[in-house]
């Protein structure tokens, strides 16, 4: 208790003040403003109780928000976690080019998402984009058309997706309600799974060799048995963490949507109206701080909930190790 106990307060003071200003006050403000109809520039505001929340859970435009957000999270989290795990297992089991694969898969994690979203948009252009041009050129190649449209397998080509696209027009990936949110999910997976991969690779280094040997002696011969009995349980804590962080990041998707549809709408028929976009649009663009804060509160509740589940799972696991 002697040396430095007084200076200690000086050392933590800036951090405490900033935590108060940047975390506590804003969270409290959101908690308060979510129950009002506050707007910047207005002199007063009213307490509206749960009116904002009622809107969020009943109005049609927010139905779109839930649809888009949950679709994104429920597609991107499992896929990016599974692909991350698969990539990590594959890379871990080969002997050559490990670093090359690791580097390539990690590139999208580092790259400015805004830049990459614009590249994807050019590639996905309905007529001039390289993806549809490639698809369209396949229509004239008998073999490609036969395989992709199912004609070679005795199906009516016009009942297949590809046959239809060849006969009619190639899909408008970003402008068609049918595809937009799925394309955004694809780009989300493309960007995120490399991050999960490196976390799993780090997790794999901690799986001890003895466990595999013990499993082998107990008769777990096949690769699947080894994975099921040793690798997967050992990766449990990593999985819990990876799923948590992917989910929290998933709720924050914004850049891709703004890059594609940007300064106005949120995709065809609002099909890409994700939560952060809603907060931005309502709270900042339309100056409806009350509604924006209510969405913020819901967002924070989600984050808390996910973290509590994570903590619970982690603590339950402690007994095993």
């Amino acid at each position: 208790m002697s040396t430095g106990s007084r200076s200690a307060y000086w050392f933590v003071a800036p951090a405490i003040i900033l935590m108060g200003l940047i975390f506590f006050i804003p969270v409290l403000m959101a908690l308060g403003l979510g129950f009002t109809n506050y707007s910047l520039g207005n002199s007063g505001f009213d307490f509206v109780a749960f009116e904002n929340f009622e809107k969020i859970f009943t109005r049609r435009s927010y139905e779109k928000m839930w649809g888009a957000t949950l679709t994104y999270v429920l597609v991107v989290v499992p896929l990016s976690v599974l692909l991350g795990l698969a990539a990590a297992l594959a890379i871990n089991s080969v002997t050559r080019f490990r670093d090359v694969y690791k580097t390539i898969y990690f590139l999208p994690v580092m790259a400015t998402l805004m830049a990459m979203a614009i590249v994807w948009q050019i590639m996905l252009h309905p007529t001039a984009g390289v993806i549809n041009r490639t698809l369209a050129s396949g229509c004239d190649v008998e073999f490609a058309y036969g395989v992709l449209s199912g004609a070679y397998f005795g199906f009516d080509p016009l009942t297949s997706w590809y046959g239809n696209a060849c006969a009619d027009v190639m899909p408008n990936w970003l402008g068609d309600k049918k595809y937009a949110i799925w394309v955004i999910c694809f780009i989300g997976v493309w960007q995120n799974f490399g991050f999960n991969m490196v976390l799993y690779l780090a997790g794999l280094t901690s799986v001890s060799r003895e466990l595999y040997m013990a499993a082998q002696m107990d008769g777990a011969g096949s690769a699947w048995d080894r994975f099921r009995l040793v690798t997967w349980p050992a990766l449990g804590p990593t999985t819990v963490f990876v799923v948590t962080i992917s989910t929290i990041r998933g709720f924050q998707v914004f850049d891709i949507v703004e890059a594609f549809y940007g300064f106005g709408s949120a995709g065809p028929g609002k099909s890409a109206y994700v939560m952060m976009f809603a907060i931005f649009e309502k709270g900042i663009k339309q100056n409806l701080i009350g509604i924006g804060s209510a969405i913020t509160i819901i967002f924070l509740i989600f984050v808390m909930f996910i973290t509590l589940v994570q903590r619970y799972l982690v603590e339950r696991r402690v007994h095993y190790s």
């Binding site: 208790m1 040396t3 430095g4 106990s5 200076s7 200690a8 307060y9 050392f11 933590v12 951090a15 405490i16 935590m19 940047i22 975390f23 006050i25 804003p26 969270v27 403000m29 959101a30 403003l33 929290i248 924050q252 914004f254 952060m276 907060i279 931005f280 709270g283 900042i284 701080i289 924006g292 804060s293 913020t296 967002f299 924070l300 984050v303 808390m304 973290t307």
Partner: peptide
């Protein structure tokens, strides 16, 4: 360093760790 309230301050740090800054962008 040992000082009164150290554990409390650390638990505040852990609490703040839960809040993504992007989530509270609007009040900020």
């Amino acid at each position: 360093l040992r000082f009164l309230g150290r554990d409390f301050i650390f638990s505040i740090v852990l609490l703040c760790l839960l809040v993504p800054v992007h989530a509270i962008a609007l009040p900020l």
